[in-house]
Amino acid sequence: MKALHEFRKEYTLGRLTEDSLTEHPIDLFEVWLKDAIDANLPDPNAMTVATVNSEGQPSQRIVLLKDLSKDGFVFYTNLGSNKAKDLKHNEKVSLHFPWYFLERQVSVQGRAVKLSRKEDAAYFLSRPKESQLGAWASQQSKPISTREMLMTQFHQMKEKFAKGEIPLPDFWGGFRIEPQRIEFWQGGEHRLHDRFEYCKQDDASWKIQRLMP
């Protein structure tokens, strides 16, 4: 195997110029997300969510972006999970979209806001039945001795809710990440990447500036 320092490539797929920018960063994000979808990237809506716990320890995990608007980025989780506990203690959060096959990445900094139960229910009821059962079966982030035990819990839930709609668990819901800063990164030749940062101002407008690579 080659030594790690021998892995090198030039980034030549595109440029990000001032002419490509939009007044609101979500408009540009939607363009880039569509490009990722059209390129048939695996899980184009996958994003890393970074949180910090009560002891100051950061942690990261990949989740799926499930809704997007000018108000922010939405994902859902078990409210007893480590990330939900972190967000209860510290609402500040970072997101990262690693579209490296397009030589692009987007970083987001903002704060997490819990969705309403009405919003939670609307999305939960739209999920496949098996995913709904999975939410009931798993106490996310808690230890479990075997996968067989997890599957047993799944089948118990399947029997319990065999008739009628599966209700929204009270321990499951969503968060909206309201962005305060969004950076768009496009790989460039000779490590001279294009980086543009959007920072939200007090009047809700966005300040845009180019960053050194």
Rank of each mutant, 00 (worst) to 15 (best):
M157G: 09
Q186R: 08
F101L: 13
F175A: 06
V106I: 12
Q60L: 09
K85Y: 05
E183T: 04
I208L: 03
F97K: 10
F154K: 09
T17H: 03
Y123N: 11
H5Y: 07
I144H: 11
D194Y: 02
I177L: 11
T12Q: 11
L16R: 06
S107A: 09
L68P: 14
I26M: 04
A112L: 04
S126H: 06
N82K: 13
K34L: 09
V93A: 02
L79W: 11
Y100S: 11
R147K: 10
Q180P: 08
R195N: 07
K92T: 09
E165R: 09
P25A: 00
F184K: 04
Q57P: 03
K158T: 06
T17R: 00
V31M: 09
Q156R: 13
T48Y: 08
S54N: 14
V52H: 02
I62V: 15
P58K: 04
K142L: 13
Q132T: 14
E197R: 10
H5F: 10
T48D: 10
P213Y: 06
K163Q: 11
I166M: 07
P25T: 01
F161D: 08
F101E: 15
F97M: 06
K142D: 13
L87Y: 04
L79F: 07
V49I: 12
L87N: 04
E18L: 07
T152H: 12
A137I: 12
E23D: 08
R176W: 06
E55R: 12
E103I: 01
P98W: 14
K88T: 15
E30C: 15
K66E: 01
I37S: 07
I182D: 01
A84K: 08
C199L: 14
E18T: 02
Q180W: 01
Q156A: 15
L115G: 10
D202Q: 11
A112F: 01
E91H: 13
H5C: 07
L115S: 08
P167G: 00
E130D: 15
S145P: 05
S138Q: 05
A162K: 12
G56D: 09
I62D: 11
G187W: 02
G174H: 00
C199Y: 07
N78S: 15
F161S: 12
Q156L: 14
F29Y: 05
K114T: 10
E18W: 05
M151P: 06
Q60V: 15
S116M: 08
V74S: 00
L133K: 04
P128H: 08
G187Y: 06
F97I: 13
W136D: 12
L102N: 07
